[in-house]
Amino acid sequence: MIANELKKRALELLADGTVKRVLGWQKGEFEHDWSPALFETAEEMKGFVYGKYAGANLSKYCLKLNKEEGKTLVMLKPCDTYSFNQLLHEHRLNRENFYIIGVGCKGMEDQNGLLMKCTCCKGKVFELSDEVIDDEESRQPMPEVDRFEQVAKLEQMTHQERFEFWRNELSRCIRCNACRNVCPACTCVKCVFDNPGSGIASKANVTDFEENMFHIIRAYHVAGRCTDCGECSRVCPQNIPLHLLNRKFIKDMNELYGEYQAGEGAEERTPMTSYTLEDVEPGIVHERGNE
């Protein structure tokens, strides 16, 4: 079983001093809600779990651990490795501070069944790892689906319908900031929304519409860097389909600048921050906006 093997290997690496701590999962308040957890001793490792409720992407938690003395063992499912790799591209993590175990994944669940992000699985490839612990079943590909289907539906709507769709969805937002705090692309030292000097926070709170803008601004800020890990929608207590905003950007970028997956491979091309003579003219982007 993967979980047992993981635990065994983590204990070995702790014991021989390769790593100082282990970033994994432990049981949470609910049966279906396992939380990210840090283990520093064999004793603490007794609480370690891995299985179908280990949906949380641990990449974001590495930011803080990057500053700690000694290596951290981090367990990354295939899709999580894209987030970790993207953070490496952005110089937010040092590779040598982490020992990465790639963990086989059969699709993660919550109380409602398969997670949204697992319904359009990125595949079973690990972008990076020091070793992989998986089994035959976890290597089987998930069924292929069109991840842009819902975005395409939104694009079919009239301006007014789309505006109302988002007004309705975002009206439930309680500004708990969970989406931002879990997002592996949201890595600012100080978020503009927390910085009074930026003048944005005060404006965003003035009316309910401005508060909705929080999500749109956030989508802009992570455009081109979002790996579509789906954590924003997974953690939203109000079930707002926030990933659709990011996915719209991804779809547009794919169509305008060619297929691109943030966090994939070595960083050779970043559609939003690189410029080539073949790039579409801004007018084409504008025309599409008027469709």
Binding site: H91, V189, T273
Partner: peptide, 21 residues
């Protein structure tokens, strides 16, 4: 510098090579 998170995006978009980290 207190706000900079070191992501290098500005370095990439600078057409003049004026930004270094």
């Amino acid at each position: 510098e207190l706000l900079c998170n070191g992501c290098s995006q500005c370095e990439k978009v600078c057409p003049y090579g004026a930004i270094t980290y």
